[in-house]
Simulated assay, not measured.
Amino acid sequence: MNILLHQCCGPCSVYPVEILKGMGHSIAGYWFNPNIHPVTEYFKRFETLAQFNREENIPLFADNVYGVQEFTKNVAQDIANRCAYCYAIRLEAAAKKAKEEGFHAFTSTLFYSRYQNHELMKKIAQEISMRFAIDFFYHDFREGWQKGIDCSKERNMYRQPYCGCIYSEEDRYIRQINKKINSITSHS
């Protein structure tokens, strides 16, 4: 099949690309990640992904629009359910692009992450697939979690420390920050 692979970043692409190529699929990458904050992080991830795709001879379509304002506007009132919105906008954009460009199917490197809700993503992708009349190719890439990490480190790829949005950044660092604040204020 000719598959459009939505890519959230370079490191998360390593294992899915290996698997898809190993299955004999023809792939192209697609960058659409309006959730990533701050803008410097957004561009670090994009540059790393673009370099990876060049090295792997993977064509890359990029909707290079920094959309953090639109993203936060749509999740600010329901932060607990932000991931569902995030999955939906990125998978829908991938399906639309795949349809426009004549691909047989779409998928995403999001299915590589152990931290994402696979059942919810799969459900959303299947609904989008039906709505846009394009196949969704599902594979649970989590099986290669450690292999992807090891390979990305061997390649000296920039590895981001959190999922992407401002809220995931807070989740990642809040305990460390609070611990430091407490130790500083307890010594005052």
Score class of each variant (00 low, 15 high):
Trp31Pro: 00
Ser26Val: 08
Ser186Arg: 15
Asn74Pro: 00
Asp150Lys: 09
Tyr115Ile: 04
Asp63Phe: 12
Gln7His: 15
Asp135Arg: 06
Arg159Ala: 09
Ser108Phe: 05
Ala93Lys: 14
Glu56Thr: 08
Phe111Val: 09
Phe141Thr: 06
Arg172Gly: 00
Glu143His: 10
Asp78Phe: 02
Ile19Ser: 07
Pro38Ser: 08
Tyr112Asp: 05
Ala84Ser: 14
Glu56Phe: 14
Gln69Ile: 11
Gly102Gln: 03
Phe103Val: 00
Ile19Met: 13
Ile128Pro: 02
Gln146Leu: 11
Ala88His: 10
Phe71Trp: 11
Lys147Arg: 09
Cys151Ser: 13
Val75Pro: 01
Thr48Phe: 08
His6Cys: 10
Ile166Trp: 02
His104Arg: 08
Ile181Pro: 06
Ile166Asp: 01
Ala93Leu: 11
Ser188Val: 05
Leu60Cys: 13
Leu4Arg: 14
Tyr138Ile: 11
Val75Lys: 00
Arg159Trp: 00
Leu49Tyr: 00
Ile3Trp: 13
His37Asn: 10
Lys179Tyr: 08
Lys73Pro: 03
Asn178Asp: 13
Lys122Gly: 01
Cys163Ile: 05
Ile166Ser: 09
Asp63Gly: 07
Pro11Thr: 03
Glu170Asp: 09
Gln160His: 07
Ala84Gly: 03
Lys180Pro: 05
Lys96Ser: 07
Cys151His: 11
Cys151Asp: 15
Ser26Leu: 09
Cys86Arg: 04
Ile149Arg: 00
Arg54Gly: 05
Gly24Ser: 10
Cys86Val: 01
Gly102Trp: 02
Asn33Gln: 07
Gln77Lys: 07
Ile58Ser: 03
Phe61Thr: 04
Met130Tyr: 08
Asp63Thr: 10
Val65Gln: 12
Glu41Trp: 04
Gln69Ser: 14
Tyr30Thr: 07
Cys9Asn: 12
Leu5Gln: 14
Tyr30Trp: 15
Tyr30Ala: 14
Cys12Gln: 15
Tyr158Ile: 05
His104Thr: 11
Phe132Asn: 10
Phe132Ala: 00
Tyr85Ser: 01
Gln126Val: 06
Gln116Asn: 08
Lys99Arg: 12
Arg155Ser: 13
Glu169Gly: 10
Arg175Gln: 07
Phe52Leu: 15
Val68Gln: 05
Ala28Ser: 14
Met157Leu: 12
Leu4Asp: 11
Glu92Pro: 11
Ser26Pro: 03
Ile128Leu: 08
Phe61Pro: 02
Gln51Phe: 15
Val65Met: 07
